[in-house]
């Protein structure tokens, strides 16, 4: 696999560098595709995206293409990975389109031959080459960050942490909530990046802070909203923002050491029981309309360059992000899980 050094912006992902590709020809949404999809009548979408975004997106698709029902199968990316492995091993064919917050999974799946190369014109024209697989097996659907955040009612802005190292201050003991890389792809990706930048010693110190351990990266924002803990060590940035826009008193923090960057690739499954509906859903999500829906609802950073980021959110280029390295994550995922479980005891 080709590796590159990436700096900051989401536009640079090591999915493959050269655009010389054996990818299939780019397709568009044709009436024939819609008709074939309608005959299938349903499509299953495996994703790690929070339900508050995934289900409305599914409903928007159903409204646009009546007669096709979307079944959203949401769970943490690492559990999703496990579930797909078990289902495939048992010859259960259910997954049509898969979308995960752990980009490393797509390297494995592609190698196993589970992904159906499929490329649309929206992808070839409007998605940066670094964001897609040269053979067209997968493409980044959207990008988000694993940000920090605090509850304004529980932490005075002057006392707020500015970065990861601040969280080791004894005053935060018992006040932190954090996701788990054994369940969440966002946290897996983030854990790899933080361990690389700050060393595993950082987590050893953090574990002494009586951290409340939850599973998915979608849960720290909810624990913060409930006021259960004052500071979230990590979590999906878009959920912190969505809460804030709903009036929840929280403030998002982009750590001074850098914010973990999470791409969310998507692919059509080769064994898809509804191959046409799978392609239609995939193509729609990558279209301007699908991308706009995700951006307007959640403010995640779109992969489609024609779609503007959500107003009121900080532009991705203004945030110091850490380098995402799916190739390395793919190699070391088991080790990361084991180390993490040893340090945090769960």
């Amino acid at each position: 696999m080709h590796r590159r050094t990436l700096l900051g912006a989401a536009a640079l992902l090591p999915f493959g560098a050269r655009v010389v590709s054996a990818a299939p020809p780019a397709e568009t949404i044709t009436p024939a595709l819609i008709e074939a999809a309608r005959k299938e009548g349903k499509v299953s979408y495996y994703t790690a995206m929070d339900l508050s975004v995934a289900e409305p997106m599914a409903k928007a698709f159903e409204a646009k293409f009546p007669g096709i029902k979307v079944a959203v199968e949401r769970t943490g990316a690492e559990r999703l990975f496990n579930r797909l492995a078990q289902e495939t091993a048992s010859n259960i064919k259910r997954c049509d389109v898969v979308n995960s917050s752990d980009a490393a999974h797509f390297i494995t799946w592609k190698r196993e031959g589970w992904l159906q190369p499929y490329v649309t014109v929206d992808i070839t024209e409007n998605v940066a080459p670094e964001m897609r697989d040269p053979e067209g097996a997968f493409v980044n659907q959207r990008t988000h960050l694993s940000a920090m955040a605090y509850h304004i009612g529980l932490v005075k802005p002057g006392d707020a942490p500015k970065g990861f190292n601040d969280l080791l201050d004894p005053k935060y003991a018992g006040k932190l909530v954090k996701g788990h890389p054994g369940y969440s792809g966002t946290i897996m990706t983030a854990t790899h990046q933080i361990a690389r930048e700050l060393g595993w010693g950082y987590f050893e110190k953090l574990a002494k802070q009586k951290v409340m351990q939850v599973q998915s990266a979608t849960e720290p924002p909810k624990k913060l909203e409930a006021g259960e803990r004052a500071v979230a060590v990590d979590g999906s940035d878009y959920l912190f923002w969505m809460g804030r826009e709903r009036g929840v008193p929280i403030e998002v923090v982009y750590p001074v050491e850098g914010t973990p960057l999470i791409s969310n690739p998507m692919a059509v499954f080769k064994a898809a029981p509804n191959p046409s509906a799978a392609r239609l859903l995939f193509a729609w999500i990558m279209s301007g309309e699908g991308q706009e829906f995700i951006v307007n609802l959640s403010g995640q950073y779109p992969a489609n360059l024609k779609v503007k980021a959500k107003a009121g959110r900080p532009p991705l280029s203004s945030i110091k992000t850490l380098r995402e390295d799916p190739v390395e994550v793919e190699k070391t995922a088991d080790e990361i899980k084991a180390k993490y479980a040893r340090i945090f005891k769960v």
Partner: peptide, 23 residues
């Protein structure tokens, strides 16, 4: 369970993972 054979108790358990306490 698999995704096709999910039952109510497992669905509740899955929702717990993402913290959707209202549902």
């Amino acid at each position: 369970f698999t995704s096709e054979t999910k039952v109510l108790s497992v669905l509740i358990f899955d929702l717990k993972e993402s913290g959707d306490v209202g549902a």
